[in-house]
Design a protein around this nucleic acid. Sequence first.
RNA 1: GGCCCCGUCGUCUAGUGGUUAGGAUAUCUGGUUCUCAUCCAGAAGAUCGCGGGUUCGAAUCCCGCCGGGGUCACCA
Length: 476
Amino acid sequence: MTKTVRTRFAPSPTGFLHVGGIRTALFAWLVARQANGTFILRLEDTDKKREVEGSAEHLIESLKTLGLEYDEGPDKPGEFGPYKQSERLDIYREWAQKLIDAGRAYADPYSPAEVQAFREEAQKNKKPYLYRNHRPENPPVWDGTQPLRLKSDPKDYTWQDAVMGELSTGPEVIDDLILVKSDGYPTYNFAHIVDDALMGITHVIRGQEFISSTPNFLNIYEALGIEKPILATMPHILNENGNKKLGKRDGAKDVLDYIKDGYLPEALVSFIATLGWNDGTEQEVFSKDELIEKFSLSRVGKSGAHFDERRLNWVNGQFIRGLSLDTLYELSKPYLPAEAAESEESYNKQVIGLIQERLKYLGEIPELTQFFYTDLPVNLDLITGNKQLKKRELSELRALLEKSQAVLELSDFSAEDIQKRLNNLLEETDEKPGVLFSIIRIATTWSPASPALADTLAVLGKDRVLSRMQQSINTL
RNA sequence: GGCCCCGUCGUCUAGUGGUUAGGAUAUCUGGUUCUCAUCCAGAAGAUCGCGGGUUCGAAUCCCGCCGGGGUCACCA
């Protein structure tokens, strides 16, 4: 019988979550969901110095916002808790004792300065530094104030990685790692192994930065008599220049900032999933349900991918266009210009309807809709910069506007009727749409871009259109 | 520097011995009665990192090199 799949995301609360972190979480979540397994959030808060106030909550909010809900976690007790490492200290101590009793762990008698001297000596001699070359012959009894180290068993390792395939290293990478620090907290190296075993984790999915310490983890599994889980190593997401692993230091953005800018959680998820993964078909965009159905670790690529915001824009646009107007409108509310609060809801909704197909992210709403709510200042550049209009005298344009005004005065202001009347005017004046429609559009919006003219006018409404036209006529 | 991983259009990628190296995005052009966008059509864009092999035949297998990244903490 096969074990129930249990995966985990195990961040340390040292800051926000960027797309790289989210991808690791997403893939772990997908593996669990598609197997009807369990997804766990575990906080690895064993470094008090690096801990950032409030980041645990921020992490949790990020996961929830993206819809990567976990079944067990710090705020979701399960039978394997607690899910915060700082609350599991006695567990690590117990497992450390097992290693001591088995002769596989010992107290480190050296001071940090002495250890540093070993390191520098090795560097000076151009030799790799290994603590185990200085392993004391008769270490003192561990009293908890010294670091506790693994008595390692250096040897070759070859292992399978669900993404990378076969990986191997020689004994030179195996060392006597610190298991428990002198402050009593375990290191990642030790704690995550104990926790994964105790929590029944079947798949350990993590970033490439851990690949070089994996042989040491294997060494610890053996010392502890623990069966190793399935290991899956995710390639890194690189920054836009592609010369570095994406990190907070070089401008990686908090995923919640993308949400604030108006990227949809599902779009972010689809985009991040396809950074390194595809289903082998030509499908480019995936709903969350499709990802759960189709995802597989074996189709995750081995090479790092650049994070390209332009492609994210396209994916997000795809999702926005796929939304119903009602849904899009609800999502749009926080982004509408302040003046929209004084407008009818039905008006606001029509405005959003008009820009749905030109929206890349919700944060663009204010600039795209401003003229629906406020009279923008007259900007003659819009006329002089227009290749059709700049050839005309202002008086000519004014005359066209006056005729248009007269025609629109009679309209019921449905888009159809406006279109019909303007078409008639086109024939009557023998003008090209490029001239007539342009000047009307500009005179009623004073905006460099707007949706189709008749639609825009219909939504703006008769009063607003006619008064803006009058104003423009007066100033031209 | 040692060790490890990676290397197909600018970018995300398909591709596991025989393909005109496919798709998407980005870019450019044309069309959709006006602008921006969407949509549609089209163009350009990859000596498959380089050099050797193996083979009738290599992006695909082998070796070497180069380039990029990761890691060598009482951080995770």
